[in-house]
Each structure stands twice: as structure tokens, then as C-alpha cells.
Write a protein that binds this DNA or RNA. Structure first.
Lengths: 208, 208, 208, 208
DNA sequence: TATGAATGAGGGTTCATTCAT
DNA sequence: CATGAATGAACCCTCATTCAT
């Protein structure tokens, strides 16, 4: 008489449907111009149902950002795992490259995630119950640094700056082709990433 | 016999009053939560008057961004002109430092300008009739590069990436102290800027 | 177990209340000077509710016109059904007479319906879900022509011209008593209708 | 020091410019959607100047209707004066035909004038200082009836009904091709006019 | 005489949120 | 659990009209 599994599963389905729909509408028309009525209607549920799953528009927005960022990051991570990359530097460049390629194919995602993605959401994916395997950025990077032969000074901050640089640059470049289209931009961007990383390398016989 | 000056001057004053008021309200409460009625009321003009000067909320926003960016940039530029800085690298670091210091004192300005500032508005200040002496970024940087003893590959793009890096980094760091407060962040940020610039230096006996 | 009927019925009631109220206000003050706020207030519903039922002021106007035209037409039709009228000509004159009498008693309706009533709305009452029995003008007239002993050339157009003539004439005559008050006008108007009809009669031994 | 003639002439020019401009805008966009600011701007005068010449939007509308109706009527009248028409009936049919042809070429004029043209404005052209030679409808028709060999019962009302019939019919037929396009409509319309007129003929040996 | 900057009441419309069913 | 009719506060924006210049 208490079909718990079924019900819980049903809830997950509805919640996902709402998030998927909201993501599409947010991407297409922007957050401000998307109404809850629209989201509910396109998701095939009643308006009241929306409020059962999310507090308001900004609550669902945060969930979506966490989910989409994780999705793109994890896909890129999986793709580079098969590549024969030696150093951490090579890995990060490759990861960046794959993320950029995904964003090129999904400019709407880029527009939406960009600038809504802040460090906080990025680091606290568990707050937004991201429903994906391995969505633990912090852990992933910590492990990568442990495995690296080269040591880095303040690795966390380095990652922070690289992410900010890549995010901002891609936004202008992919969406507005400014100051250059992304393809021409890439080499300079990768150069900058390498420059930042090398400036933080700790050499054996060196005191930091 | 020439009532032109008076009237035009008067218009300028009203327009500036609206922009100043709107800037304060946008900074305090955010753009979305600021109504045109509020702006008009605080500026001491009728609601209709707002629409006489600006198309809508987003029009005045663009004007304000262009104006504030220029203001901060020009003040920093003036401040470093008296310093005995030899190289372009030193100048850009100093300029960045002064800009950051201003933004620390005006976190609201930072919140508002951030990520509303895109490369387009930055480069087309004349579109928004910025009313300030020397608000010609492009020209300023071009001159600086001409005067520099060191040559740089793709100087425009280098500036673009530096600006994006500084902007994004400061936003998180000043407003949310993440991943570190701005004072501790600065050295790493300046290191990154230097690293980016050095990676683009053109050495005499080298073919680009 | 079937809440369908209740809800739908309730909607119908609200919609009708809005139409009745709007009709009164349009008649009294004209369409341009009637605000949606007024309509909603007088109907005892929230302003938002109006927009739940009608797209805008002109949507409700069309619904009202279709409804009122049908109402007046059907009442006149019912009234003449009990009269011992032999020919189609007599029937149409009688119908016209009864319509005119109603319009004399409801000059506001006349002012409102006049010239807002166009042939399109008149013929497509189903588009505006007129909620009245027998509101099928086309069908009514077609049947009448079938039953008539006298044949007419182009009966549809004849009806069109008669309706236009009567509508325009009554407007000026009832509302402004120009060029004559309606009572003195009537005989001349009926003469004209008869003249138009007779000019379109098809006689047995005649080829049209 | 008092350039009266010049000034008066100037006024006439401005007034005509306003009326011409307003007529175009009213025709194109409708009265409700045309603003005084638009009229003034397109006419090349200040907004305040409009109020020097007209009380408000509805004042200029009445002037325009009177002027346009007169224009079309007079042009048709002039055109048929050269034709060898014997009877009044022929003249009125010809006049109607020419008016209809003009309206076909100027559907915007038709849309605008129609239903704004009421008997009052038509008969009191002097109220709106129509600036055209011979714009005295009443007089024109009275003379025509005096000259006619055939007498008519209540000629004024006959004209009234003909005008109403033609006006309403043309509106639907020219603008919406309902119930038939105007070319196919014409013969039936002219038949109706003839029928109405013949029904009002007074025969010598007859007592009305 | 002519202007056009300034006004502000008031219109239409939206939409997050609630709650009876 | 789910719904969607109902709400009404709040917003944006228009525009006729005035009046100092």
C-alpha cells in the first residue's frame, strides 16, 4: 500500500523534467524572461507542482547551473582519460580544450552558465544534489595534483584563476567572436594557461 | 540670443542626475529590483522624463557601465602617470593595482560593472557618449605599446585576456573572499599577469 | 467524482459576467474610455482574471458583438414566428421592424454594435462561441429562401445589402433623428427594402 | 511691419501640412494609434504648434473627414459633368460609380472616412471650413432635383439612404471582398439604387 | 509665434504565489 | 499528490497637455 520506490522514482522524473525544461527556456530566452508558468506547462505539470520541487526561479536556476557545469566537466574528464597525457599541464590543457569544444557546440549553455557559475556553486555541488557520478571537482583536482610529478605553489588558486580566465575568454570569443574567433584564440589562451602554471611550478632545489 | 547652450547644458545635467541616481540604486539593489519609478523619484524628475532621456532600463545600464568603467580606468591612469615606471609590464601591473584598490573601496561598483562590462562596450565608449576626457581605451593602449621598448605578439589580445582575468578574479575575491581575500590574492594575480606578458614578448633575434 | 462539469460551468459564469459588465460599460462610455480595470472591478473579479478569459479589450469586444447581434436577431425571429406572414418579403419586413423596435429600446446597444458589426463576425458566430440556441444566421436565411415561393437572384447579396442599409439608416435615425426620426423613417425604409427585393425576383417565364 | 498676408498664408500652409500628415498617419495606423507627437514631427512643426491650430486629435479628425469627403465627391462630380447623362437616375449612378472607383484606388481613405463620416459632418461642411470650391452638398443636390424632369417623393431622405447603402456596401466589399469583390458587386448595387429611386418617383397623374 | 522639455496620471499587462478541489 | 483558476500588487510605458523660454 506504500509504493515508495515508484513514488520516489516518479518524483525524480518530474524534477528532472522540470530542470530540463527550465534549462532550455533559460538558455533560449534568458532567466528574466522565462516564467514559471512556461516551465510548468512545457514540463507537462501543473503550476502548483513546480513549487513542490523548487522554492522559486532562482532555486531551480542554481540546481541547473550545478548540474550543467558538472555534466560538461565530467564529459571532458572522461574524454581525456583515454589520452596518453604525461604531465598535469598537458592534462589541464586537454581538459580545457574539450570543455571549450563542448561549449562551442552549446553556445546557449555557455550563455546561461557563464557568470551564473560562481566559485561557490562550483565547489559545493553536493548542496544541489547533482545527480551525476564523480561530480566532486575539489576531489578530482586534489587527486590530480597528488599524482603530478611537478609540484605547484597554491594549486587551488591557480585552478581558480585558470577557470576564470577560460570562462571569461570563451564567453566573449565564442558568443561574440571578440577579440578573435575561438579557434584563433585558443593557442594564445593555452599559452597563457601554460605561462600561469609554469610561474607557479616549485622546483626541487628551490625554497618557496 | 543663443539659448542653445543653456538648454543643452540643462539636459546634460538632468541626464547625469538620472545616471548617478540609477547607478546608486542598481548598485544597492541590483538592476532587476530597481524600478524606473524609483530612479525618477530619487532623481527628482517625473517618470516620463526618464523615457525622454533613455529608451529603457537597459539603455541607462549600458550608459552607466561605459561611464563608470571609464571613470575608474582614467583615475587609475592619472594616478600612475606620476610614478617612475620604466617598463610597460610595470605600468600595467601598477594600473591593475590602482584599479583593484578603487574597486575594493567601491564593491557596489564592482558588483554592478562586473560581467556587464563586455569587450564591446569597453571598446565603443563613444556609442554611449561618455562625458570624460581621455576615455579612449584603445588609443591609450596603442600609444603605450608604441612607446614600449619591449615588443609584444598580439598586444590587443593580451590586454583582452588580462582584463578578463583581473575582472573575474576580483569579483570573487573582493566580494566573496574566495578563494582568498584580495590582498593575499594580489601577488598571485600579478604573477599571472607577468607570466602572460612574458610569454608574448618578442625578442630581437627571434622570428615570430 | 466528475468535477469537470462544476469547474467548466463556473468558468462559463465568470466569462458571462465579464461580458455582461463589459457590454454595459462599453455602451455607456464607449470602448476607448472603458478600462479593463473598470470591467474587472464591476464584474467583481481581479484584473488578472480578465486576462485569463480574454486576450485584450478587442477580444472581448468581438465576443460581445457576436453575442448581442445574435440575441437581438433571435428575439426578433422568435417574435415573428407567431405572426401569420405569407411571403418572404413580409417576413423580412416584419423581422426588420422587430429588430428596429428593439434597437429603439436599446440605443446604447445600437451605438455599440453599429459598424463594429461586420459581415465577418455576423457569419462566423461559431468563432466567438455564441452561447445561444439558433445563432446560425446563414442557415436561418437559407432555409427561409428554400421555403419561399418566390425565387430571388443572388439571395445572399440581397440580404447583405438590406442589412447594411438597415444598420446604417437606423444608426443615424435612432441616435441622431437624422434625416428624420425613426418612426417617420420606417415607411421609406421598408419601401426601399421592398424595392430592392422586387428588383431581384426571378419570374417563372424569365431567364435571368 | 505687419505682414498680414504672409502670416495668414503661412498659417494656412502649416494647417494644411498638419492635416495632410495627420490624414496619412490616421489612414495608415488608425486614429487611436496615431499620436500628436507623430503628427507634429512629420509635419515639421513643434508639438505646441499643433494645439495652436486644433483643439485635439478629434478636432483635426473632423476637419480631415469633411475635407476628404468633399474632395472625393467634388472630383466625381467634375468627372461626370462632361458625360452626356440625361436623367437624374443616370447621373446618380454615374456619380456613385466614380466615387467607388476613387475609393478603390484609395482603400486607406475609405477605411478612415467610413463610419467616421456621419450625416452631420456631411451636411455642415462650413463648420469645418472646407477649403474647396463647391463643397456644398445640400445645394448641389437641391439644384439637381430642381433640374430633373422626374419628381421624387422625399428626395433628401432618398439621397440619405442611397449614401448609407453605398458607403456600407463599399466598405465591406472593397476592403474585405465580402460578400463579393466590388466589381461583381456593382451591378447589384446599382440595381438597388435604381429600385430605391423608382419606388420614390412621383408620376404626374398620381396623388402621393 | 513657436518650441520641445517636462510632466504624471493612468493605461495595459505580467506573473509569482496561493488554495480549494 | 497534483492541479490550475484566481488573484492583485507591481511594473513598464504612453502621451495629451502645459509653459518657460
Amino acid at each position: 500500500m506504500k509504493p515508495d520506490g515508484k513514488a520516489a522514482q516518479n518524483k525524480r522524473i518530474k524534477k528532472d523534467a522540470l530542470m530540463r525544461t527550465a534549462f532550455e527556456l533559460f538558455s533560449l530566452n534568458g532567466i528574466a524572461k522565462t516564467t514559471i508558468a512556461e516551465i510548468a506547462e512545457h514540463a507537462g505539470v501543473g503550476k502548483g507542482t513546480f513549487y513542490f520541487y523548487f522554492k522559486d526561479k532562482y532555486d531551480i536556476r542554481n540546481h541547473i547551473i550545478a548540474h550543467q557545469s558538472a555534466r560538461i566537466f565530467l564529459k571532458a574528464k572522461k574524454e581525456i582519460e583515454v589520452l596518453p597525457l604525461e604531465t598535469l599541464e598537458e592534462k589541464i590543457i586537454a581538459l580545457t580544450d574539450h570543455v571549450i569544444n563542448q561549449l562551442c557546440n552549446e553556445p546557449l549553455t555557455l550563455r546561461f552558465v557563464h557568470k551564473n557559475l560562481n566559485w561557490g556553486i562550483f565547489q559545493n555541488s553536493e548542496l544541489y544534489d547533482v545527480n551525476l557520478e564523480g561530480a566532486d571537482f575539489k576531489g578530482v583536482f586534489e587527486e590530480a595534483f597528488r599524482e603530478s610529478e611537478v609540484r605547484y605553489d597554491q594549486p587551488q588558486m591557480m585552478i581558480f584563476m585558470i577557470i576564470e580566465l577560460v570562462g571569461s575568454t570563451c564567453y566573449e570569443s565564442i558568443l561574440y567572436h571578440q577579440p578573435l574567433p575561438i579557434d584563433e584564440m585558443k593557442p594564445y589562451l593555452f599559452d597563457s594557461i601554460r605561462a600561469i602554471m609554469r610561474s607557479r611550478e616549485i622546483h626541487e632545489n628551490q625554497v618557496q
